[in-house]
Design a protein around this nucleic acid. Sequence first.
DNA 1: CTGTGGATTTGCT
DNA 2: GCAAATCCACAGG
Length: 226
Amino acid sequence: MEQKAEVSARRRSDLPGQLIPRAFFERPPEKVAPGLLGKLLVSVDSGRVLAGRIVEVEAYLGPHNDPPDPAAHSYRGPTPRNLVLFGPAGHSYVYAIYGLYFCMNISCEKEGLAGCVLLRALEPVLGIAEMRQNRGLDEDASPRMISGGPSRLCLALGLTRPGHNGLDVTNSESILQVRDDGFPKADVVITPRIGIKHAVDLPLRFAVRGNSCVSGPRKLEQWQSK
DNA sequence: CTGTGGATTTGCT
DNA sequence: GCAAATCCACAGG
């Protein structure tokens, strides 16, 4: 039955759930971020569908905020790399990091303002075997090892730059979409962001409490719920 | 034009 | 727990 669900979803016309409207993303990232938990990131690659449920995200604020967010790529204004962050909401921002990996964000705020949500972990839903292959893992690999981590999820779904940068995730013709399949809201944990050097105390990381795919330290109990 | 360091992952100690 | 791997954007001169 899990098998059947995967087969029936391998058509663009029958992707799981519904597209999320652009207006959802035309808000401050700290509002968008928790709302993305439980939604599906769906990639359509040459007819094949890969999808994962978003279980961990971080918000990065645009330079129009007071105070601004020195950890954000948009902190010093538009550059060739971060340009899509200043464009319309609901577009993918994929960047390379450490010369080896990629990270995937979705732009927020209306055109002219920056701000984005970094996707940090997915729980594999469709095309699990292919994701595992993309990661070079065995049959018994845990979901966490497949797509738990901002660069792991890019490897699992095959997301790269420039190929997947600047895509409209609110468009049904896009090869990268965010969709809502009605999955019930979960208990959300709020913590500081991971792996940054600036603004380390801002509580802008949001994760599904208890989900095994969430990256970083396991001990989330100490953090406030929402 | 050059130097620096990063929103990470992995493997070894 | 720690450091290597490995690239290029961008800030500074």
